[in-house]
Design a protein around this nucleic acid. Sequence first.
DNA 1: TCCAAACGCTTGGATGTCCTAGTATATTCA
DNA 2: TGAATATACTAGGACATCCAAGCGTTTGGA
Lengths: 170, 170
Amino acid sequence: MGTPLSRDPIAEARRNWEDRGWSDVAAPMAAITAIMRTQQILLARIESALKPFGLTFARYELLALLSFARKGALPMNKASALLQVHPTSVTNAVDRLERAGLVARSPHPTDGRTTLVGLTAEGRTVAQRSTAALNSQVFSETGFPPEDVDALIRILGDFRRGSGDFEDSP
Amino acid sequence: MGTPLSRDPIAEARRNWEDRGWSDVAAPMAAITAIMRTQQILLARIESALKPFGLTFARYELLALLSFARKGALPMNKASALLQVHPTSVTNAVDRLERAGLVARSPHPTDGRTTLVGLTAEGRTVAQRSTAALNSQVFSETGFPPEDVDALIRILGDFRRGSGDFEDSP
DNA sequence: TCCAAACGCTTGGATGTCCTAGTATATTCA
DNA sequence: TGAATATACTAGGACATCCAAGCGTTTGGA
């Protein structure tokens, strides 16, 4: 999106906050803004690695989820819950993946309201290859030192649990 | 988006990765996925706090940036660089904010290519009030302990610098 | 001096996310 | 058993992001 800035814009924002007397919330503001920006950077890398497969991250996530499902298929609402996105987002992703021949919808055997989504043979292949691409191009060199990776997992795990993403583990 | 899951879906994904023999990238994968999810949670909180002002986070960021600019105005491309978003995203945000009467475009005095964006009186007021809302409703209770806030700022700062967001500070 | 290359902004298109409704199927309970 | 409530999915709309193109304005080298 351009050349590096001469100064960190987030550190700049934090200074502005402090100058206005909001020192008590300046650090959290900076942390949250940094998370936003980091997500943006990582998403761009991921989408770039997925591009050759005609996938976006949203569609990849669904594909990956299905590839780990016992029967390679899940109810739409289950996928929505596990991916933690709005049901309509799943509908959207399934529409496109289905058009691409990577997944297929099928009626639930006993519940007429429910639709199952399953991988096609091609979908399974694409899931494997795209995962390999992500592993080698993105996850293997994140730019985070190992100890920071551990810290992030712990810190963000606490945060997500506190936000009601999942129950405390036993 | 639903009730808490009984297990952490990201920890689940990590286990799946390890089971498939991708242990070397399982942790980074989990960290990145956690960042994605955390961003989603935080964004939802922010948008919720901004809703009463008719603002989205993207528009708020522009408003806040302008409120800190010396003359309350900046060239579009400068705003794009500082917010680290695509120029078209700024065009989009300015269009809507201008329609809402919060900012105004004006021609650059010497460079005919450049357009300046500045706050209107009302824009300045809304910027102040919405910032107060964010400070009190979001930043003051993030759910991150202070020491985690510091860790995040350090870790993500290193990452952003390494990603070319900004130069090493002197 | 003059034209090509660079720069700045906008338009149009593809995606993704969420929300609000609407339709169909299940469940619950009086 | 039949009506009221709850679920599951989809359609349509509002926004945001990025990319590719197109249109002026500036700049820089021949």
